[in-house]
Design a binder for these strands. Structure first.
Ligand SMILES: [Mn+2]
Ligand SMILES: [Mn+2]
Ligand SMILES: [Zn+2]
Ligand SMILES: [Zn+2]
Lengths: 141, 141
DNA sequence: TGTTAAATGCGAATTCTTCTCGTTTGTACA
DNA sequence: TGTACAAACGAGAAGAATTCGCATTTAACA
């Protein structure tokens, strides 16, 4: 049941919320934009409005159920928050995303912030690169 | 003369371009949005259109004269590219930005990317934190 | 099952950015 | 120095992503 997570977040268990959470659970491998979520829900019998998708994703973010990322390109993408933090490598050619976590970097960040007299809240580290997958449009060079 | 840099970039030396570059040189301490640049140029006798500001900033970016950053908040900010790379700490309360460079982190990034079979092109590391400046609205807690 | 506040869907509105197009302006060269 | 022409400009329309406003629906709980 998805219900529990939603209820725990203090939100009413509605069909749109159940379906969006379900969908995110089915795509833990991808990072979905609001538009992506909206389109994936379109065939799915009862329709969910785009505004609702945005609202629900934002609420899920506040509730700690999903994470939002702002990669280049202007639109936010979302993924289920499965607890552990990770950062991202994004292929500039095909958009493929890989995740990683590096404790050396994480620790350095904390040190730097402390030295500067800040209190670290969160961070975004995105490595833009060219991947080497066979189906990547720019795998040459 | 600002003219040289602009001409070297293969761009015609026009008044808007001179003024925008000048303005960025006067504000190396800040990170300006296109809107910021536009407003700062408004009093300044001859008017520069907002579309031109966007166009010129994008051209300067391609020419390596300025760097664009996408901090949280949806709008791009720009700063003069003075050669050396650096990353950013952004105060979530007052928007104050501090810059830093950490060779340990830079090196780890290169290692990680290589391990994953990518070719690193660039990266964005932004630490979101709470600063400790007296005039910061949320300096408490 | 009825009441009620919360949530939804729709379209309008915002915000940031880019495009279109008629006009202006550097630049190369006569 | 004057002319020709591509490049650049300003203004406003258009576009893309996101949020808002509001009438209607729905989950929660008595
Ligand atoms: Mn991820
Ligand atoms: Mn900077
Ligand atoms: Zn790729
Ligand atoms: Zn601050």
């Amino acid at each position: 049941m998805d219900d529990l997570e939603i209820r725990k977040a203090g939100l009413k268990v509605t069909l749109p919320r159940i379906k969006i959470l379900e969908l995110l659970r089915e795509h833990t491998d991808r990072h979905l934009s609001a538009e992506d979520v909206y389109k994936l829900l379109i065939g799915c019998e009862s329709d969910v409005g785009l505004a609702t998708v945005y609202r629900v994703l934002t609420q899920f973010e506040s509730a700690g159920l999903v994470k939002r990322h702002n990669f280049e390109g202007g639109q936010s993408v979302f993924e289920l928050d499965r607890g552990g933090h990770h950062d991202h490598i994004v292929c500039l050619d095909c958009g493929h995303v890989e995740e990683f976590i590096d404790e050396v970097i994480e620790k350095r960040q904390r040190t730097i912030v402390k030295e500067k007299g800040f209190a670290l809240e969160k961070h975004a580290l995105i490595l833009y690169a060219h991947c080497s997958r066979g189906n990547c449009p720019n795998r040459n060079r």
